[in-house]
Each structure stands twice: as structure tokens, then as C-alpha cells.
Amino acid sequence: MTESAVTVENLVVTVPGATGPVRVVDDISFEIAAGNVLGIVGESGSGKSLTALSLMRLHRSPVRIDNGFIRVAGTDVRSLAERELDAFRGNTIAMIYQNPMSALNPVLTIGNQLVEAIRIHNKVSRRVARNQATDMLAEVGIDRPADRLDSYPFELSGGMLQRVVIAMAMSCNPRVLIADEATTALDVTTQARVLDLLRGLIEQHDMAVLFITHDLAVASEFCDDIQVMYSGRIVERGTAREVFEDPRHPYTLGLLGSLCTLDMELDRPIPTMPRDIAELSRLAPAIDHAALEVQELR
């Protein structure tokens, strides 16, 4: 039996509220197999980023994991000691964010930062690390990689920087990659190219990917499976096809309905979320398309 690269069971993340802890991630469970991309879609405050941070234990007080089991590539994440976390982050799981500048030091060259990242995790000489860095930049599709090592972040475009960050994330060959709105800030043509790059790397390295986005169109093209989150809960999950072609939960329907698409009808209002969506969502059962299939077969 193959073990999932990521297993999350009954995860609860809380922040303190006026009347006790508020569950910002409310008892969610999911798995990601190696080589698979799980998309978490949802709007601000739905808990998608906090879910991702949980996998790396990157929460800062007062946000805390209150309950649940998290296993990433065989490691029980919650049982790791603080000093074990550094090796775990990077080697086993890596993350890329929306703003590549936030992941890079503006006063150091790209090469310095890549070499540092490589040498933290592998005992190799500077020269070897530098050669590896060159190869990595080439792998993420950067022209004249050897020259680029001497560039500073401000000398590169947003798309190039995101490639550098991807290269850095890939430097230790992680088993799991978290992409949190990683292509959101990019122009559409650049975004398409960076997604192509990611797709290639995922297949080549057989990584499990947690892909967080509010962009439903990107999610529908890029992800194998989709989880829709709303107010800390997973309200619907299935393959990308199932969720986008046959959405069942009122929140998913509302979300897809209010999306501007190139084929939408003009000269009438865009359908908006029902006003009582919070109530509707709470009452409606969560939809798992895999379970629906089973029921229909019986």
C-alpha cells in the first residue's frame, strides 16, 4: 500500500477571540498522493493559507494548531522538536509565496542566496554549490544562468524572480511543495509559463503539491483535485472536473457564479453570492464527490 505524501486528519487551527478560541481551520482532513496537485480554493479568510502553514508548522503565536494529525512524507509534523524543524523545512517540504521579493534578500545576489540555501542542507563546497545553483537556474528556464547568479533581485522581472524562488524551493528536492498564490501577482502570459514550468518539475520530481489560489480558472487548469474552503471548513471536494463541472455546495455554486469569464453573458448583472450564504453553508452538508460516486453505484 502506498502512503500518501501528505496526510492531514482533523486539523483545527485557532486564534484567540473575545469569547474563547475561534476555529479558523475547523476540523479538516485530506490527503495528497505523490505527483498529485491538490488545489485549495476559497476567498480571503477561508483558512486556506493557515492550512498550508500548518503543514510546515509556520504559525506564529497567537495562531496555533489546536488539534489534528499531520504527516508529511512519513514525518509526524506535530511531534517534531523545534531544532528538527529547520531540516524538515526545505528538505522535505518547501513553499513558494505570492511575492517573490519577500522570499529573497534584496542586498544579496541571486547566486549568494542559492548557494546559501544549498549549503544549509547539503555539506558541499562553495564551488560545487555554485555549479548546482547554475544547473537549478537552467532547470527553471532562466537564460544565461551563470551570469544571472551575479544579478541582484531588483535586476530581474517578477516572472524571473518567481523562477528563482522556485529554483530555491527545489534546491533540496523536497517531497512536498506548497504554492501559496504563487502565480497570482504575475501577468497572464508569464503565469502560463511559470505554471508550465511547475507542471514539468512536479512530474519530474514526483512531488505532492498543495496549490493555494483564489483564482478558480487557474485552479481548474492546474490542479488534479480541488477542495473548496469556506470559513475554515472544506465545503466541497473532488477532482477538478467534478468540482467545476458539477458543483453541488451552495458556496461553490455562488463562487463559480460570481466569476467573470470570457463566455459570461453581458448586459445583465453578474450573479452574486446569496446574502445568507453563511447560514446556507452551515446547513448544507459538505460534498465529497468520491463519496457521491459510491452512493450512486450502490
Partner: peptide, 24 residues
């Protein structure tokens, strides 16, 4: 280069129309 991957089935369309009518 715009992702167009959001195929909308008949059920979804019907649901949109229903909500749109309510809204109107």
C-alpha cells in the same frame, strides 16, 4: 493565455439563472 478551464455544465447554468432571477 487566459485559463479557460471552467466548463459550465447545464446544471450550473440553471442554478445561475435561478439565483439571477431571485436577485432581480
Amino acid at each position: 493565455s487566459i485559463p479557460v478551464g471552467l466548463p459550465r455544465g447545464a446544471a450550473v447554468r440553471a442554478e445561475f439563472d435561478r439565483r439571477l432571477e431571485l436577485q432581480l
